[in-house]
């Protein structure tokens, strides 16, 4: 795929590098992302339980940090988009999604772990299905099935355009939204990690096996690797934020009809 001058021995990273079974093989193997997911979930639970055990009016440093994250989800996402009066039942869900996505994304650049869980498509799919179920259930509970279907077509359309718009909107509602939600998270994490892998492996190859002119280029390669790692932190936060933002937008649409 990539033509280096002395590329006989260099194998560029491929999607196959993301398949890392630890126990067993085949469809029921226990893989590395599974272990990372279990550990991060346990860690999040532990931190949240311990940090909220002794809450005080004057917060300690840990409580302050936690309240910062919680405040971000509740105020700048939940209240601004769903509305202060409606957001209460959903705060827990939004906060859980945000912390899970954020911590798992950051695992991609945490030393030793270094595996973003959501770079395996199965994980974002499950998360997107959870969001899909929540917003559909909220729609049906608040507007009823008929109201939900009626809601899809904006009022004031010419009569001939209604069936076309209805089919398109139904497709968006049922298929495209969860699909894009899952693919976006997957794509960002996968592509980001692939890039890191490419620069790390390429730098290593050029430094140790490349010969004279390539040795020199290895240093900027590692420099780029360093900057990409920093960039990956930004992407981790952005993707977690975006996932919650879109989730709350979909939920906010439930209440768009009543004014």
């Amino acid at each position: 795929m990539i033509a280096l001058p002395a590329s006989a021995g260099f194998t560029p990273p491929s999607p196959a590098d993301f398949w890392q079974p630890l126990i067993g093989d085949g469809a029921f193997a226990v893989t590395r992302p599974m272990v990372v997911m279990v550990l991060t979930t346990a860690a999040i639970c532990l931190v949240l339980v311990l940090a909220t055990k002794k809450l005080s009016l004057v917060p300690s440093r840990g409580q302050w940090a936690l309240e910062g994250v919680y405040g971000l989800v509740r105020n700048s996402v939940g209240r601004d988009i769903i509305g202060a009066a409606r957001v209460r039942p959903y705060i827990g869900f939004l906060f859980a999604i945000f912390t899970l996505v954020l911590v798992n994304n950051l695992m991609g650049i945490t030393p030793v772990v270094q595996y973003p869980t959501f770079s395996r498509i199965g994980f974002p799919i499950v998360l997107a299905i959870a969001v899909w179920l929540v917003y559909i259930a909220a729609h049906v509970r608040h507007n009823g099935v008929g109201g939900t279907l009626k809601h899809l077509v904006p009022p004031g359309l010419p009569f001939a355009a209604v069936p076309v718009v209805f089919v398109l909107e139904l497709l968006t509602f049922l298929v495209i939204r969860p699909l894009t939600l899952a693919l976006r998270l997957f794509g960002n994490m996968f592509a980001g990690h692939m890039l890191l892998l490419l620069f790390a492996l390429g730098g290593e190859y050029m430094l140790l096996h490349g010969g004279f002119p390539l040795n020199v280029v290895a240093l900027p390669t590692f420099l780029i690797y360093f900057f990409l790692t920093a960039f990956e932190i930004l992407i981790s936060f952005l993707q977690a934020y975006v996932f919650v933002l879109l989730t709350s937008l979909y939920i906010a649409e439930v209440y768009a009809g009543d004014h």
Binding site: S76, D80, L183, R184, G187, N188, F190, L245, L249
Partner: peptide
């Protein structure tokens, strides 16, 4: 700024998804 930021990020995300489709389909 605050309001525009949310809208900008939303627009960015909706736009970016096509590049993400591209990378998924490329593989």
């Amino acid at each position: 700024r605050g309001m525009l930021q949310t809208i900008a990020i939303l627009g960015f995300v909706l736009c970016e998804q096509f590049a993400i489709f591209g990378i998924a389909l490329a593989f």
